[in-house]
């Protein structure tokens, strides 16, 4: 069969198929887009109503530093603020879906999480010419840094910096990235993301081989996206939800304050053997101490942690919640749900 013959066959295919195509039309496009926008607005409103109805006065403060030896966190002010309209986890999924819409082959690194300040995730080394793609669903923007470390305890060198805009309709940004074989580990970081973005937006990034050719590297556990690292919150009435990583502690950040009631603490810690800890306590008047109400410890395991559920109840005044991640690297997904 000649090329001409094949061209003729395809021309026939086109000629024969074109008249059969019945475009739904631009009114249908407009209607779909309008419906999606409306649905998004309704979802946002519903999420806000749900949180307000729960009587929550919460600020999404993530405390991920290891708690003090006595297990009692230091005092911090309780603050009231509007709740996040859409779960940052959902936003992260939206962002990741945008990346998946591209056809770049299997990513070497693939991650989707809420934007938190001082985010730091360790990823493996894939020597060669790579492409870093990132996107964010939400508002604001942040800088995603990639640092390279040559030795286990060596100094880190900034390899790349990518400004990631957040939007309700995320658009990926990309940049070339070169990794060399002598690197021990690569740390992806976020510093000083704006307040309107932290804990409200979700982001995703992926790293690919630039040429599409297979790249042999030394993977790290967090290189692969794994939804099992998240809590299963299906059917739960979420009061507060967040994620903590080592180093994501923001000194002085307010802790969420929750009214008295019957709750369950849910935790799941993924990482090297250690413990993720979530505590509920109440500040004594004048900041003279902290009464521990409950503490949930979650052993960190790989590749995905185990979901731990700890019932907790209290009466009287609202209580504060703090989060600790007692591990060098890992991820603690935590949530407070109503019972």
């Amino acid at each position: 069969m000649t090329t001409d013959h094949l061209e003729a066959l395809f021309a026939d295919l086109r000629a024969e198929t074109l008249p059969e195509v019945q475009p739904p039309g631009t009114p249908a496009v407009r209607q779909t887009v309008r419906r999606r926008r409306t649905r998004r607005a309704v979802l946002s409103a519903a999420a806000a109503v749900l949180l307000i109805a729960g009587g929550i006065t919460v600020v999404n403060g993530h405390r991920s530093a290891a708690p003090p030896a006595d297990g009692i966190p230091s005092p911090a002010p309780s603050v009231s603020a509007p709740a996040a309209p859409v779960s940052p986890f959902r936003q992260a999924d939206i962002a990741r879906q945008t990346l998946l819409d591209g056809d770049y082959g299997t990513p070497l690194i693939d991650l989707a999480e809420p934007v938190i300040n001082n985010y730091a995730a360790s990823h493996g080394t894939y020597p060669g010419q790579l492409v870093l793609r990132a996107t964010c669903a939400g508002t604001g923007s942040f800088e995603l840094y990639v640092d390279s470390q040559m030795k286990k305890r060596g100094r880190q060198t900034r390899l790349a910096s990518l400004k990631v805009p957040c939007s309700a309709e995320p658009v990926p940004v990309a940049m070339p990235l070169t990794m060399t074989a002598d690197a021990f580990v690569h740390t992806f970081r976020i510093h000083e993301a704006p307040e309107r973005t932290v804990d409200k937006a979700g982001f995703a990034y992926q790293v690919y081989s630039k040429s599409g050719a297979p790249v042999t590297g030394s993977p790290e556990p967090f290189d692969e996206f794994d939804p099992d690292r998240r809590l299963d919150l299906t059917g739960r009435e979420i009061v507060f939800e967040g994620v903590a990583r080592p180093g994501s502690d923001v000194p002085g950040a307010p802790r969420p304050t929750v009214p008295a009631g019957d709750y369950a603490l849910l935790t799941k810690c993924t990482g090297k053997p250690a413990i993720g800890r979530m505590t509920v306590g109440r500040l004594r008047p004048m900041g003279s101490g902290f009464d521990l109400i409950a503490s949930a410890d979650s052993p960190c395991t790989e590749p995905a942690g185990k979901q731990v559920e700890t019932p907790v109840s209290w009466t009287g005044d609202p209580a504060e919640i703090s989060f600790g991640l007692v591990t060098e690297e890992g991820l603690l997904h935590y949530a407070l749900v109503r019972r």
Binding site: T157, L159, A160, S161, V171, P172, V173, M179
Partner: peptide, 23 residues
């Protein structure tokens, strides 16, 4: 390996002309 490369958008650069209508 210390060079910091500038990010680029995945989308083409806008050009100046009358844009076609969606329809």
């Amino acid at each position: 390996m210390t060079a910091i490369v500038e990010p680029r958008s995945e989308t083409p650069d806008p050009v100046q002309h009358d844009p076609p209508s969606f329809d």
